[in-house]
Computed example of a mutant assay.
Amino acid sequence: MGGKEVLIKSVLQAVPVYAMSCFLFPMGFCKELEAIFARFWWQKSTGKCGIHWCAWQSLCTPKENGGMGFRDIGKFNIVLLAKQGWRLISKSDSLVAQLLKAKYYPTTDFMQSRLCANLSYI
């Protein structure tokens, strides 16, 4: 089980991090990823299903609270996007911040901007 924990945390949950820092994943896709992680965690061996003894959300709680410390993919996606928003605010002189400001919120700042039609997935 220790090897599975390391594999889930260091590989399976780390692979989509770059895409999650740029795009908002649909919650259905996040749940599907978590279902894959849970199946891998509970399986006995290759091709054999195991019994899911507790919900995945229980395993996502911190270790000091009795969980395994796995990431909730949906919440982690929001955190990574908030980090990008913070970069747009704190480093407004960067090229990407100037580009996004010119395209999406030319008359306001990032915090006062509103969603409008014809947006990209970024």
Results as ranks from 00 to 15, higher is better:
78 I>D: 10
79 V>H: 06
93 D>Q: 14
44 K>N: 11
120 S>K: 06
33 L>H: 02
35 A>F: 07
62 P>G: 08
54 C>T: 12
3 G>F: 07
102 A>W: 02
95 L>M: 13
27 M>A: 13
65 N>W: 11
56 W>H: 00
74 G>A: 15
48 K>N: 09
43 Q>S: 15
38 A>P: 03
88 L>A: 10
99 L>E: 02
48 K>P: 04
62 P>Q: 07
13 Q>E: 14
10 S>F: 03
10 S>L: 08
74 G>L: 00
42 W>N: 05
12 L>M: 15
54 C>E: 11
65 N>Y: 11
27 M>K: 15
12 L>Y: 09
82 A>E: 13
71 R>Q: 10
56 W>A: 01
51 I>M: 11
90 S>C: 13
20 M>W: 03
111 M>L: 15
122 I>H: 09
43 Q>V: 03
9 K>P: 02
110 F>Y: 15
68 M>E: 10
19 A>P: 06
51 I>D: 05
69 G>S: 10
103 K>Y: 04
7 L>W: 03
26 P>A: 09
67 G>T: 08
96 V>K: 00
11 V>I: 15
37 F>T: 02
37 F>N: 00
8 I>T: 01
21 S>K: 02
39 R>V: 07
92 S>V: 08
35 A>C: 09
85 G>C: 14
73 I>N: 01
90 S>K: 15
121 Y>M: 11
14 A>K: 06
59 L>R: 04
60 C>G: 02
27 M>Q: 14
97 A>E: 01
12 L>A: 14
83 K>R: 15
16 P>G: 00
90 S>F: 11
9 K>C: 05
86 W>G: 10
66 G>Y: 06
96 V>I: 15
119 L>G: 05
28 G>P: 04
29 F>I: 12
17 V>L: 14
85 G>W: 12
93 D>V: 07
106 P>T: 06
88 L>Y: 07
1 M>D: 09
85 G>T: 08
115 L>C: 08
80 L>V: 08
111 M>D: 12
45 S>P: 04
100 L>A: 08
58 S>L: 14
44 K>E: 11
7 L>S: 08
102 A>I: 05
64 E>Y: 12
122 I>L: 15
80 L>A: 07
25 F>N: 03
52 H>K: 13
114 R>A: 11
103 K>S: 03
84 Q>C: 10
9 K>H: 05
53 W>Y: 14
2 G>R: 07
42 W>V: 03
48 K>R: 13
90 S>Q: 15
100 L>M: 14
81 L>D: 01
30 C>L: 05
58 S>A: 14
42 W>H: 01
